[in-house]
Amino acid sequence: MTRPSWAPEGIDLDRPSASRVYDYFVGGMHNFEIDRQLARQIEAFTPNIAETMRANRDLLRRCVRFLVDAGVSQFLDIGSGIPTVGNVHEVAQGRDPSARVVYVDIDPVAVAHSRAILDDDPRTAVVQADISQPDVILADPQVAKLIDMDQPVAVLLLGVLHFVADTADPLGCVAALRDSVGRGSFLAITHATSDGQPSEVLEAQKLSGRTSTEIMLRSKDEIATYFDGWSLVEPGLVHLPLWRPDNPDDIGTAPEESGAYGGVARKI
């Protein structure tokens, strides 16, 4: 196989990468046949997994557009994976060319690919760090270089908190991030849920995680606590297709089948 420019040396192309599997599911081009084979195996267990991942990606785009229109020009995207099609910096800079984005992920494969893809963009940076160590993220020199914490910041936690076990104190992690940003900042979260999901989906969903870490399915009330002290913007914490759809037809007939909630809140 010829190694493309976005796949740096040291990345094993003969083993599937969970980040590249996600890229495939959302229509990206940064994946290989070995990744697509694994994706098809996952789909056999969870037929709606691709739809769920696309719903999450679609919400990301709508969310970023909303945030730029609200005056935000700097983004901290934690648990970003590979910045694939319709990524944060493309959407944000399409509306505001001065927008700055720091991508953060613990997966070394995602980080290596991201750095290769974004090497020539001075308004983006990639940091390898874990959501469970917010102090490490906030102290990183690249975060300090691109993100001015005295100005409104959008903290994006899209599809990552359900990989954080209760023993790692996800509430404390999110609280540290909330406390680090000033008034006028926003927090965006999407999170897989057990609400309304059949038992077979609950079992299969454990196999569809981006890493080998078990997905922690949480209820709407549990997810809502991540926004404590902030003001949820309309329409609140809702199933993914219900969050500010571009077109009413995009909601579909069963938005709860997305298997996840999404919401955005502002620090007043």
Score class of each variant (00 low, 15 high):
A144M: 03
A44R: 13
T190D: 05
K145V: 04
Q133L: 11
A265C: 06
P198K: 00
H30V: 13
S132Q: 04
A7T: 11
Q37C: 11
M216R: 13
T213K: 13
A176L: 01
I251H: 07
T2G: 08
A110P: 10
I78E: 06
V68Y: 09
P97W: 11
I268H: 14
V233S: 11
V127W: 01
M29F: 12
V201P: 01
D195L: 10
I42L: 15
T253I: 06
V136C: 03
D249T: 02
T193N: 02
N56P: 07
D77L: 04
P198S: 02
D130R: 10
D96W: 03
V64D: 06
E90Q: 15
C173L: 00
Y103M: 09
D179P: 02
N247M: 06
M29G: 14
Q93E: 12
K145W: 12
P170V: 01
G196R: 09
G81E: 11
D221H: 05
A188Y: 06
R20F: 11
P8K: 13
F75R: 14
L157C: 10
I189L: 04
L171A: 09
E9W: 00
N31K: 07
I11W: 06
T213E: 14
W6Q: 13
D249H: 08
Y226F: 15
L237E: 00
A125K: 09
Q197C: 04
